[in-house]
Design a protein around this nucleic acid. Structure first.
Lengths: 236, 236
DNA sequence: TAGTGGTCTAGACCACGAT
DNA sequence: TCGTGGTCTAGACCACTAC
């Protein structure tokens, strides 16, 4: 990495040089930049090194690369932010609180149609539905409603979710691959408001997550956070 | 890519094989997996190919790699979701609506202390403050309050934000590097509720974004979305 | 000190896709 | 058709760090 003692450039250096040209509009939006081979000659590195650097910039959204068409500067770099999805316990403890967990309800139920659709489940007649409360220093932190498919999470009907949250059980028992997140603001009502010990009508942050394993749905989660909760993107 | 006609494996194939071993707990959490050279021999590929595959898995959070220590399977793969941050216009049009924009207020003001802190600005006495409304089919979509630093966005005092939203002006005039996002739920009140044409007390989704260029703050944005708005992670 | 991952190179073949 | 990026290889050197 970095220029080593010999003065040769590494891929990070090449990426930095390219970034500078983008920032200075030497390579303006929409323009085609020189091919890898040419840049390799110019920078005095091998094509692989240029490739690695430009690939990194492309992953960040700055460049649009296509065979034969060449590398084009993105018209509008679509920025991205990444959300970390930690265990509830880690989140609470990272905020400086003592974590607590309470199972409110557990039932094996016929698979709701909408759920089957969202999780892409076919021929899974019954699912496990859980309702639980996450606590921080004994005070409500988030209310959780969750459905788990026994197909992708075998043994879920036998697990003891009074002792361990579904989140933690799943992490240690089911290898998941992708997560889909949806965030909205809603007004607290009825049971959820009561469990969160907040007034009816409070604005609360609701997070829905669908977790999949190789495209097959594992669990759908609906988290209603206590008022004032904030989700932050990770600086990375 | 993929196994070609010769039956040789590509890095994606190696990554898939590794993923399978992780899923099957052949490489259980916490375990050290064989070194690159050994896997290269086993799979019949070069070490570079194994490196590329394992590097990809490490970036996804499945593996923890350290020189000399070797490659360890992450105890709890911290999942991540990525949020795309499109132009408001693109977001509205992608939802199938006609985009509209209205500048509500514009003023050059003394830099608020908290803002200077958040944007990491030093010695920037005045900033531009904008208030605007984004419309979808003529109806309120989101209310925007924004501060822009003239230091990182030169010429911002002269730009015509009645004709073009700050978002679009910035994209074409200031190359930005990183975005920090914070999401919360609040109750609509006063001016914002009026502009969004919703009842006082409605739950609305509030997004705050700080955009930086090489670590120096460019703009802070506070977006109050109309009730019912939803933020979704990108499937990637 | 020695083992491991990080990276670079030079060369090669191939897939895609603009023309 | 044929230029461009995508990828693989074999070998090499180096940085880091557990021992």
């Amino acid at each position: 990495m970095a220029a080593d003692a010999t003065g040769a450039l590494g891929w990070q250096d090449v990426a930095a040089l390219a970034r500078a040209r983008l920032a200075a509009r030497i390579w303006p939006p929409g323009a085609i930049i020189p091919p890898e081979a040419e840049l390799a000659r110019e920078f005095g590195v091998s094509r692989s090194t240029v490739n690695r650097a430009l690939r990194a910039l492309a992953e960040e959204g700055w460049l649009d690369r296509r065979r034969k068409a060449g590398t084009r500067v993105a018209e509008r770099p679509v920025h991205r932010a990444t959300l970390a999805i930690p265990l509830m316990r880690d989140e609470v403890e990272a905020a400086g609180h003592r974590y607590g967990y309470r199972l409110l309800d557990r039932e094996v139920t016929a698979t709701p149609g909408l759920l089957a659709l969202q999780l892409g489940m076919r021929g899974v007649p019954r699912v496990l539905r859980l309702e639980a409360l996450h606590l921080a220093d004994g005070r409500p932190w988030a209310h959780e409603e969750r459905w788990i498919s026994p197909e992708t999470a075998p043994g879920v009907f036998e697990a003891d979710f009074a002792a361990q949250s579904a989140n933690e059980w799943l992490v240690t028992h089911v290898p998941c691959s992708s997560v889909e997140v949806s965030v909205s603001a809603e007004r607290a009502t009825g049971r959820v408001a009561a469990m969160l010990e907040c007034e009816d009508g409070e604005a609360i942050l609701v997070v829905e997550r669908i977790t999949r394993q190789e495209g097959r749905g594992v669990t759908l989660l609906r988290l209603s956070h206590a008022p004032g909760h904030r989700i932050r993107s990770t600086p990375g």
